[in-house]
Design a binder for these strands. Structure first.
Length: 465
RNA sequence: GGCGUGGUACCCAAGUGGCUUAAGGGAAGAGUCUGCAAAACUCUCAUUCAUCAGUUCGAAUCUGAUCCACGCCUCCA
């Protein structure tokens, strides 16, 4: 299969380090707030990547960190700690805040049918590993100490910014770049930060350099090393991580470990809202819970995401989501009717190449939109038996993750209130008596109670609205 | 200011030199069915790919210019 590698800025053939196995690390959430649907676009893309790897027969070890250490509101080592700030606002401990938002995150991941990573390491549970890495960097001469922390000297790392193709001179000339007096280079960053002298932090640890907390790029380097090794296959995240976060991870890991860090860097694009990036600072973020309030199920959002390639910006709109909802509901109907047909049908096997087409699409840098087109075309192909189509749909769904195999008749008869059922029965009788005025009246009554009556050849069907 | 990405139908979007006389979905319209609806099914829906030049036997796809939008350089998926 082929994947776009940010490091080479080109689509490359994927070759794992160890035959048949893939180790991948994905940057996870910071748990001082709700993850919005834009954040989930990234986790969704990583899920698709993992599913495609698995579909190709790879044994995937997937790690996603939980950033529960508060970072500062600025990358320039100033500002408030977001975690501590949130805790103060809520009158809770930072640990409570972290747990609260982690739990919600996990729940949303499940609702979106994202396969859980093998491990969800928390930054606070790997403090020792992070300290070890700073020690290693210090021993190798990559660090220096200032009044507020231990810093990484990026001028010591020859290839600094190579993946991101950073123009260091350009950064220096930039209008918006300011940097602290004590930093030797504008791109230097802290690997260990000292606790402020005059205040007690809720999260702080002893270290050889004094009480404090780890720098915010360090956890990924330290935890991936511990869980996946010095050198592994794939590292994912949002495109915003390219210039700073991932650039610094490479610098730390390769300097400390003395070997190549990651083979394939894969980044997902943003979800936009009103042509602008959806972000907390710009307001107007939406959560899975909020979508539910608006009548959209997590699967509707998942289907929505399936409509765009992961490296393209995707504009979120209610209209777009509604379109995805309609499409997904139709897809469900189609699966249901195939299930009925399949039950009483002779097993036949018509030769076809849909699976090959599907594989070709997903293996071409996760061509999920085209793969979805293959699904639709296949479902409409009458030369295939219902059984064949169902089988293929379930097979493709290993990648789509739309829970097609879980689709049942919308309403089991028991769930419908007796009164609604009785009204529906009366309507049927009225219809038989050709009393259409009464029949329509009853249908409206049922509708008011939240159900829709659909007539079929041999009766009727009730569906919740 | 520096760096980068993208502009394809009413909407979301594939496609990145000939197999495409531009996928798929949504919306819309027409028809079949129906007492009427709904659902389902069938059909229709871009001679055109922001604009203008150019390269080529051939361009949505390559080159240049222009216009527009967005992202990164600030924690951010």
């Amino acid at each position: 299969m082929k994947l776009y590698n940010t490091a080479s800025r080109s689509v490359e053939e994927f070759v794992p380090i160890e035959n048949g196995k893939v180790k991948m690390y994905c940057c996870g959430p910071t748990v001082y707030g709700y993850q919005h649907i834009g954040n989930f676009r990234s986790f969704f893309f990583e899920d698709i990547l993992k599913r495609v790897l698995q579909y190709n027969g790879y044994d995937v070890t997937h790690v996603m960190n939980i950033t529960d250490v508060g970072h500062l509101t600025s990358d320039e080592d100033s500002g408030d700690d977001k975690m501590e700030k949130k805790a103060a606002e809520e009158g809770k401990t930072v640990w409570e805040v972290s747990k609260f938002f982690t739990d919600i995150f996990m729940k949303d991941m499940e609702l979106l049918n994202i396969i859980p990573p093998n491990t969800f390491p928390k930054a606070t549970e790997y403090i020792q590993e992070q300290i070890e890495m700073v020690k290693e960097l210090e021993a190798k001469g990559f660090t220096y100490v200032t009044s507020d922390g231990v810093y990484y000297d990026t001028s010591k790392f020859p290839d600094y910014g190579k993946m991101a193709r950073l123009d260091i001179e350009g950064l220096r000339a930039g209008e918006r770049v300011e940097f602290s007096e004590e930093k030797k280079n504008p791109t230097d960053f802290s690997v260990w930060k000292f606790s402020p002298k005059n205040e007690k932090r809720q999260m702080e640890w002893d270290s050889p350099w004094g009480k404090g907390f780890p720098g915010w790029h360090l956890e990924c380097s330290a935890m991936s090393k511990k869980l996946l090794g010095n050198h592994f296959d794939i590292h994912c995240g949002g495109v915003d991580h390219i210039p700073v976060h991932h650039t610094n991870e490479i610098a730390q890991s390769e300097a400390a470990n003395g070997e190549k860090f990651v083979n394939y860097w894969v980044h997902g694009e943003f979800l936009l809202m009103g042509d602008e990036k959806m972000s907390k600072s710009k307001g107007g973020t939406l959560t899975i819970a909020r979508l539910k309030e608006e009548g959209f199920e997590p699967m509707h959002y998942r289907y929505f995401l399936l409509n765009a390639h992961y490296r393209k910006k995707l504009n979120f709109s209610e209209e777009g989501l509604q379109g995805a909802k309609n499409a997904y509901e139709k897809l469900k109907e189609r699966i249901l009717s195939l299930k009925e047909k399949a039950a009483n049908e002779n097993l036949t096997d018509t030769p076809n190449n849909y699976k090959e087409k599907f594989l070709e699409k997903i293996n071409n840098d996760l061509g999920i939109t085209e793969a979805l087109a293959v699904l639709w075309t296949m479902l409409k192909d009458d030369t295939l038996s219902a059984n064949q189509r169902l089988e293929l749909a379930y097979d493709f769904d290993k990648v789509f993750g739309l829970q097609l195999d879980k689709i049942e008749k919308a309403e089991a008869a028991d769930d419908i209130p007796g009164e609604v059922k009785s009204l529906a029965g009366q309507r049927m009788q009225a219809k038989k008596d050709k009393n259409f005025a009464l029949s329509d009246e009853l249908r409206n009554k049922i509708k008011e109670m939240g159900y829709e009556v659909k007539d079929s050849k041999d009766g009727y069907e009730l569906k919740r609205l």
